[in-house]
Write a protein that binds this DNA or RNA. Structure first.
Lengths: 241, 241
DNA sequence: CGGTTCCTTGAGAGAACTCAACGTCGGTGG
DNA sequence: CCACCGACGTTGAGTTCTCTCAAGGAACCG
């Protein structure tokens, strides 16, 4: 990064070229709200890993972000200095939906890989939502799904169950053909998200590999026996197929 | 209950008498959406504990419910027969917000104590939300707060931290004056919600009592040293004051 | 190429769980 | 009226799943 160390992320603004955007489930793809949604958007931004936070805990809730490419993670740092990963956001996901009902951002957001996002300023967004209830409704539906996901992961499951469910859910969200998942995040981040130590994540993956359910080399995971993983992940109840 | 054993809850329908409803943060209290919200509501229903489910996992998403009095819990039962409590709903809370983005109800809902609720049918609700974006926006804000809560509880915290945070959060939601909290739910339900064994919840409460932070007799908890509990609960980051 | 971060594996420790027993409470029926 | 029953709450003892600590190897970056 040839830029100076800014308190917040270095951003590269570009026009919102939906024509070349690969995101399928974007609001801009829905004919009934496309115009309204586009009217809200500011120019896209790019954020690089290690380039500072997109926003930090307590920051004013100025915008929500729609991921075009890359991966964002959100996390909090508690009084004891422990980091708690709250979520990973992939193309099509909306970042900061958990902030709309709060005064300040409930978490810090950073890029896990080089990431592009569309920016929806909250003031303009709220205006459009008031005028176009369908936009608000689609955001409500998305928040509802995020809530259902959080509540599912919240359950009391074993390390194997959580890791298996996480892998399959991620594979689905990344739309991995050929069964190869390229993990954007580290074992440490996965562990924090799933309330597991880094070592436990490693050991579970090793165990799955020894059983012939997957092949793992660093961030590349090949799912070999999907049915076996689904059987383990079933209790968690995440959409995985 | 002298009634027959129905597959679903026995319900007692009454008119929506907002004039005598004690719920402060109800949508009906907000002048800008009161009329629209009221136009959606069906007659209130009452549900008793042990009288069957309000709805069950997989049921069609026909309605969301606004709690007037009492306490609802939602939970899933996984393939291994384990019960996972997903949430408790107190007066002012909306039940089934996590269902709006799904095909079927993601959980089962039962009454923990005798409960009264307003019923908002989803079809009518969606129509009103399209016409009145402010209604949708307020529901989005509520879903956002629910999401932030779920993500906070999701973190990797000790049993002491979770129980302390839960108690203070509950005390706040119940608006307990004089520092006495009347728990609607059992230790078992609390444990399931917090991913703890029943015995662990007991032991934590006993420990807090031995430290002089609270007095506990069955479902009655008196908070004596709120500051000490808040110090323990701080990492979780729930709104507790 | 050094330095850092990440990944992996092993060994020991610990927080929470399971199993078990017992007391209490509220409802039920003899 | 009181014995009985089931659900709930509490406490103890032993177990276990996951964590912590430690170390080595691999990958990445400047």
């Amino acid at each position: 990064m040839p830029f100076d160390a800014a308190p917040h992320a270095q951003t590269l603004r570009t026009r919102n070229d939906c024509l070349v955007c690969p995101v399928q489930n974007c609001l801009a793809r829905d004919a009934s709200v496309s115009a309204a949604w586009n009217s809200v958007l500011q120019p896209c931004i790019s954020v690089m890993p290690g380039a500072g936070a997109l926003f930090e805990t307590g920051d004013p809730v100025d915008a929500v972000y729609s991921v075009r490419a890359g991966c964002i993670k959100t996390f909090t740092v508690d009084a004891d200095g422990r980091e708690h990963v709250r979520g990973f956001f992939l193309p099509g996901d909306l970042v900061a939906l958990d902030a709309l009902g709060s005064r300040g951002m409930p978490a810090t957001a950073v890029a896990v890989t080089p990431t592009q996002m569309c920016v929806a300023p909250v003031v303009a967004l709220r205006k459009v939502m008031r005028e176009n209830g369908t936009v608000a409704q689609m955001m409500l539906d998305q928040a509802s799904r995020d809530l259902a996901l959080a509540l599912a992961i919240n359950g009391d499951f074993t390390a194997d169950e959580r890791v298996a469910a996480f892998l399959l859910h991620l594979a689905k969200r990344l739309d991995s053909r050929d069964g190869i998942v390229r993990l954007p995040m580290t074992r440490r981040d996965i562990g924090s998200y799933l309330r597991l130590a880094t070592e436990t994540v490693c050991r579970v993956l090793t165990r799955f590999e020894q059983k012939g359910w997957l092949a793992s080399q660093d961030k590349r995971i090949q799912i070999i026996d999907r049915a076996a993983l689904q059987a383990v992940a079933a209790p968690v109840g995440l959409p995985s197929d």
